[in-house]
Write a protein that binds this DNA or RNA. Sequence first.
RNA 1: GGGCGUAUAGCUCAGUUGGUUAGAGCGCCACGUUGACAUCGUGGAGGUCAUAGAUUCGAGUUCUAUUACGCCCACCA
Length: 883
Amino acid sequence: MSNQEALPRAYEPAAVEKHWFPVWEKSGCFHGKANPQKTPFSIVIPPPNVTGILTLGHVLNNTLQDILARRARMQGKEVCWFPGTDHAGIATEARVVKFLKETENVSRDELGRDEFINRVWQWKKEYGGKIITQLRTLGCSCDWERERFTMDEGLSDAVKKVFIQLYNKGYIYRGQRMINWCPAAKSALSDEEVIYRDVPGKFYHFRYPYADGSGYVVVATTRPETMFGDTAVAVHPDDERYAGKIGKMLKLPLTDREIPVVADQHADPTKGTGAVKITPGHDPNDFEVGRRCNLDVINIMNPDATLNDFCPAEFVGLDRFAARELAVKRMEEAGLLEKIEDITHAVGYSERGNVPIETLVSAQWFCKMGELAKPAIEAVKSGKIKFYPERWSKTYFHWMENIQDWCISRQLWWGHRIPAWYNDDNPGEVYVGETAPTAPGKWRQEEDVLDTWFSSWLWPFSIMGWPEKTEELKYFYPTNDLVTGPDIIFFWVARMIMAGCEFIGEIPFRNVYFTSIIRDDKGRKLSKSLGNSPDPLEVISEYGADALRFSIVYIAPVGIDIRYSNEKCEIGRNFANKLWNACRFRQMQGEVSADFENVPAGLSGDEEWMLARLEEAAKSIGEELDKFRFHAAAHALYNLVWSDFCDWFVEAEKLPLRAGGKEKERALAVLDYALNKILKLLHPFMPFITEELAHRMGFVAENDSIMFSQWPEANQELKLDNDIIRSIEGKFEMVRSGRNLRSSYSIADGKKLAFHIKAANETALEVLTKELDSLKHLLNASEIELGLEAFDCASRGAAPSQLGELGVISLPLAGLIDVEAECAKLEKQLKDIEKWLSGVRGRLSNEKFVNSAPAQVVADARKQLEELEAKKSQTESILAGLR
RNA sequence: GGGCGUAUAGCUCAGUUGGUUAGAGCGCCACGUUGACAUCGUGGAGGUCAUAGAUUCGAGUUCUAUUACGCCCACCA
């Protein structure tokens, strides 16, 4: 794309985006490698599920990472952003099971383990990892050569090594424990994978008769079907109502079993009847009671949550919910149903399976977390790792300080198979190691696989080749920033910190930025079923990737949820178009200056003003990004480009551009200098359009990229004259006043007008004289009468403006002005002035204020008083003149 | 039950360490196409900062309580 070619009127993102990404990727721009000459900067991507497709959440998350990476690259750092995907055990297995059912009508079990796993790999090859392509569409500057998958060989080795190490340390153990069971996945889950929902339910009160026929005990339950697992009824030892009953037997209804009344602290005498049925096999509390009272633990369920053959015949094979209804029915028939209450209670659901989980006792593998947590807590406490927003550290500490053992085994096939073997010749003998044991015996490998997060928590170093001591690891670890959602703070962030501390002896990252959660414009969560989840690829094709990126950062508030709708992308699209046209305008003025990196000598006031705005923007954008305040940086850019550059500077420069000669040359040089800086500052946010424009304008060589140009830090050497800058602000204020007059008389902008300006003082007069041509240009004035003496508004039929920094501008409109209306306007102004005046006077006459407020504040108030008084008297004289 | 967050213009949000006329974008109203841009320009209207107290010379900003909404954690039958 040569810079000779004229720019089209409107920016068309599609072709530009399609053009640049392959160019970048092919040229190896994104590749990072150990380079001792440079400071390393690394990020690891939160690996999306291999089944996943791009969502707006990913767009936000990855745009932010890209901004960090691209800025660091421009700052001259050696950048590596490590990409990859997660094998996502449950999600992927379920997905492929469904796929096989639909395409081949075969089940997982029909295929068998090895064949099924083959099919998952096939599926992955064909359909998996779509999101990786989609992230390219978004412009992500990941080091795509380094893409990894959590089931890759090296990463799997890391998992094994870690498992063995923790096993040998005594942290990993296998045991019978109460766990969360997902009937959909038919697997154990960790506590974190259970989400609690308040749902309507019923509270059933049942009568359990004493075996000797001496009446009954009333117990209440929300889960009648679990009664077949009851092994006791507990009462509080001090509960007088049951004095003498402890030890008596009850007949468990609908069965031929008898169960004892036991005494246990768990029974709360203040609740209900004070008696509680005990189901040690299906309730964590009851399990503990069972332990204390030596009760049997009975599992009454099959893996799919149907009742097993321990239950009465007619219940066997029934789904738990059907069993519930039947149990209630039978109890009622037996006259043992006391009452039913409607209640709302929290029910645990499986996060992935979206069905109520079962708590049951099962043999699973666990990892003790207490010791692992200690250094990880310290890392955040000491500030080695910083959270943004900081408050998330509270959530982190709370969880870490109460951390429970982690159930890491899953009854799935897709995942890292646990490297443990059982000796069938010698039951109880277990071997844990990289490969099958060679010792004699009939060894059988554990069927279970590991929780997906057991590989994800190693991501920051497994992706760099650990346990090999690679160059990457040495150079890029620990990484700099992590950008992720707060919803996986426990699943992932906390565990990565523990893993880093434990296995590398060093934290995995220094800063963690938690993104906002995206909702629709009504504040609802985005979900497929609601149909309110836009497809980012469609948005990109409609608005452009840059537009989507910019918009989503621009609208993302600090620490709260984002309300998104596609129309918001107009912000970015319009902004891109504005930038495009600013460049188009510049291009139409002639060749780009030879030196666009430096400022020419002999600047005009407007030009100094522009440089000042640019400096201030560069400074604030840098500072905001350092604090991860992305949206603030985006707003600063928006104002810089639209308001400062386009609305004021470009308009003002049209004058010297028209003048031609040296003046034009200088104006062009400043425009180029500013545009070049603007494109650089904007590049991390909008990589495509800035690359395109930088080339079109000739700011970067044909084979180069803006992504390696130098990031504009605030320029300390630039000496700007604050008086001049202030006077330009005054000029702009006067222009606004003049336009206001024009507008209030509904005079078209195109009509040339004559104005009068009364300068506030000698200095103002000097400034105004110097800027007179500019004022005429910006006001589209045919003539401006300028002086120190009061303008006789009444005789000239003129409407005066409000008093500004530099003076009063008035618009003589013989015969046209409405004197009454003008007077009313001024009187209102006068009233306002008086109101403020009395406020300031009141303050200054308050001794306490004068004595205790900082000197500067008092001085400011005094100055304000003077100004207001002057303003008042001037306004009064204008008013008098008008009459 | 515990913890956290949010409440500012019609809508979505800014508002740094308290400093006195609370800002932006969108929307709305008026006017406007003379070559950068109608994906635009110019001007304008619009807010007793959720409520009640407290601290202070001064509170959108600090403290307490209340209300509403949202999120997280917690074994309550």
